[in-house]
């Protein structure tokens, strides 16, 4: 079973507990306006061009292709979308197993890992069989059965909740949130370990805090709610991929995050400031 990924990060600490390796799946069903991983949106292989790294050597002969990227000596042309067999990728990822310790492991992220369902399950199983703890970092927009198939191999779900208001969700992500919220309820009912991630983007979803809190109050097993601070740092990669960049210009301030955390806490929910704590 082959899958396509946009990158791997090792010794990552922000995608779950302990020392982890994060695998970024390529392709996502949502189009969040603030997306920081533009290279993970399309399911297709993409060749990016980082102008700042180009020395105009001419090795690419002006082409922006995978073959030209191979000839590029500086990495100015960069291919996003390596293909792997699940078994082979699991073997590769297990190189870091000595460093994972008690809590660490591999996080499947993206893009949206559930959007390559068979590959995600095969990879999670292959890692599970090697004794490596698997976290699933997801936006939740997937068929119920995909989650069901993953549950046996998943230690914890890192689950995005971006808005409760359907219209706000649609405006910010391009999709409604009904299925996302249903899936979240399903995971909680099944007794899965779940950590909520709420990316706080001023002027977009910052009015959703109370509504999200009310919804989460009705769920069981939410271990943590992490409020993430928004920055506009991904602009250079949008440019390199020649993708239109709609990143909000206003950045979330630390105070904004603290305020949101306080709201969640006032509901008795275990919220943390993602800019400070992991």
């Amino acid at each position: 079973m082959k899958g396509r990924i946009s990158g791997i990060k090792r010794m990552e600490i922000h995608d779950g507990e302990g020392l982890r390796t994060t695998v970024f799946f390529k392709g996502c069903p949502l189009r969040c306006l603030w997306c920081h991983n533009p290279e993970s949106l399309s399911f297709e292989r993409q060749v990016a061009y980082f102008k700042g790294k180009c020395i105009s050597c001419g090795a690419c002969r002006g082409e922006q292709s995978a073959e030209a990227a191979e000839r590029c000596p500086t990495g100015a042309l960069w291919v996003y979308g390596m293909e792997y067999e699940a078994e082979a990728l699991a073997a590769l990822l297990s190189a870091d197993a000595p460093f994972f310790g008690e809590k660490g492991g591999v996080t499947l992220s993206g893009g949206e890992c559930l959007a390559q369902p068979e590959f995600a399950v095969a990879l999670a199983k292959a890692l599970f069989d090697r004794g490596i703890g698997v976290y699933i970092d997801t936006c939740g927009h997937a068929k119920r059965e995909v989650l069901e198939n993953l549950i046996p191999y998943t230690e914890k779900f890192l689950y995005d909740v971006k808005a409760m208001d359907e219209a706000v969700h649609l405006r910010c992500t391009g999709k409604g949130n009904a299925r996302i919220l249903e899936n979240l309820s399903f995971l909680c009912e099944r007794g899965c370990r779940v950590e909520i991630r709420y990316p706080l983007v001023k002027g977009y979803n910052d009015g959703e805090c109370e509504k999200i809190a009310e919804f989460l109050l009705g769920l069981k097993g939410i271990e943590k709610i992490k409020v993430l601070q928004y920055h506009s740092f991904a602009a250079s990669r949008y440019e390199a991929l020649e993708m239109p960049c709609h990143l909000p210009s206003e950045e979330t301030l630390l105070e904004d995050v603290e305020r949101a955390v306080a709201v969640f806490k006032s509901f008795g929910l275990p919220a943390v400031n993602g800019a400070k704590e992991d």
Binding site: M11, I13, E17, G18, D96, K103, G104, E277, D278
Partner: peptide, 15 residues
């Protein structure tokens, strides 16, 4: 950063 940063540093050393 944070507690998890310390956790990761320790497990990288132990590994």
């Amino acid at each position: 950063r944070g507690e998890n940063g310390i956790r990761a540093l320790v497990s990288s050393l132990e590994g």
